[in-house]
């Protein structure tokens, strides 16, 4: 039985918009709203959502860079919420973060080796010999030779930058790694190599990943479980297989539908969601998705749906799940092609 490593209990993160002189008070932006999630030891949990859905804020909240305004986070059995800002990051040392653009996450004036060394120094490794050894080990682990120490960040290719980003935090011996869009901006041909490295590193170092992405096709081949976010809330969560073969929430279905497929001439048949995601500062009432949902009725704008168990391990937040299931059973073409 794998144990729970991180548990989020009803975590919300709210921003107060900065008020300008003589301006009316603005309502707070609820970037992350009552998110409950568990992260099992050794698993890869994907968090999927479009830009502005709050997945990055969720990551920063888990890291302790952003203070949760409600709920609590339990890390390996210890409550790490409610600490003063300067301690909360320290208490979560076991969690490390790889930036979306690891090249930009390196000081452009510093050689890669110096940046890696600094990360370890900041991480509390005082002995320079020990640091040098760890850097060598980590560069080796991500498949780069020691010569990369003397490179500057701009001299690295996209794939190499990701590798350095991974090496940087691996030296700190984290248990949980949050990967923020680890493949965005990479060619498909390079993506696969980076993803494989990420998976290999998990096995080698016994890591647990929180994998943030907007791209379901990436997550499909990586993750054990997947959580779908829309406007700060989790709308569906389940095992990768459940999400891909039997998506229940209409938003999940739309996301699956929208992924570009290797099937020429199908564009006309695919239904696109109407409109754009609403501004997080002006969330629709009730179910936030109702403004774009093809199945929405008037109750959807009134009732805020809670996550409900639809089968073991899979939960979805929608009040019309049963109706949608019936409708898609009658007209299977409404379902994403992959789930038919």
């Amino acid at each position: 039985m794998p144990k729970v490593l991180v548990e989020l209990q009803d975590v919300s993160t709210t921003f107060k918009p900065r008020r300008k002189l003589f301006q009316d008070k603005l309502p707070p932006i609820r970037a992350v709203e009552r998110v409950s999630l568990t992260l099992m030891e050794g698993e890869i949990l994907g968090v999927i959502g479009e830009s502005g859905c709050g997945k990055s804020t969720l990551a920063r909240t888990i890291l302790g860079l952003q203070t949760e305004t409600a709920g609590q986070i339990v890390l390996d059995g210890n409550i790490v919420s409610g600490l003063p800002a300067r301690h909360s990051r320290k208490a979560r040392r076991d969690i490390q973060y790889v930036h979306q653009d690891p090249g930009a996450a390196l000081d452009p004036w510093w050689r890669v080796g110096a940046s890696l060394d600094e990360s370890l120094k900041v991480g509390g490794v005082a002995d320079p010999v020990e640091r040098a050894e760890r850097i060598d080990r980590m560069l080796n682990a991500v498949g780069l030779n020691a010569g990369f120490r003397s490179r500057y960040p701009h001299e690295l290719s996209g794939g190499q930058q990701r590798r350095i980003g991974l090496a940087r935090i691996l030296g700190l011996h984290p248990r949980i790694v949050i990967l923020d869009e680890p493949t965005s901006g990479l060619d498909l041909s390079v993506q696969a190599t980076v993803l494989r490295l990420i998976r290999d590193l998990r096995n080698q170092f016994g890591l647990t990943y929180l994998f943030i992405s907007h791209d379901l096709s990436v997550v499909k081949r990586m993750c054990d479980r997947i959580a779908i976010m829309y406007l700060g809330r989790i709308v569906e969560v389940g095992s990768a297989e459940q999400i891909f073969t039997n998506p229940r929430h209409p938003y999940t279905q739309a996301l699956l539908n929208a992924a570009p497929r290797l099937r020429p001439g199908q564009l006309e048949e695919i239904e696109a969601l109407a409109g754009d995601p609403p501004n997080p500062a002006r969330k629709p009432s009730g179910c936030a998705f109702h403004t774009r949902c093809p199945y929405a009725d008037e109750r959807c704008s009134q009732i805020e749906p809670e996550l409900r168990e639809v089968r073991t391990g899979q939960q979805a937040a929608c009040i019309r799940l049963e109706a949608i299931a019936q409708q898609t059973a009658r007209t299977p073409e409404l379902l994403p092609e992959i789930a038919r």
């Binding site: 860079l65 990051r89 973060y97 930009a104 000081d107 900041v122």
Partner: peptide, 23 residues
Amino acid sequence: LFIDALESLGASRLRILTLHVMP
């Protein structure tokens, strides 16, 4: 982003200012 990265590693403010912002 690299300042953000340092903050997420837990680097002190003085370190960030003198070693990274200044240059």
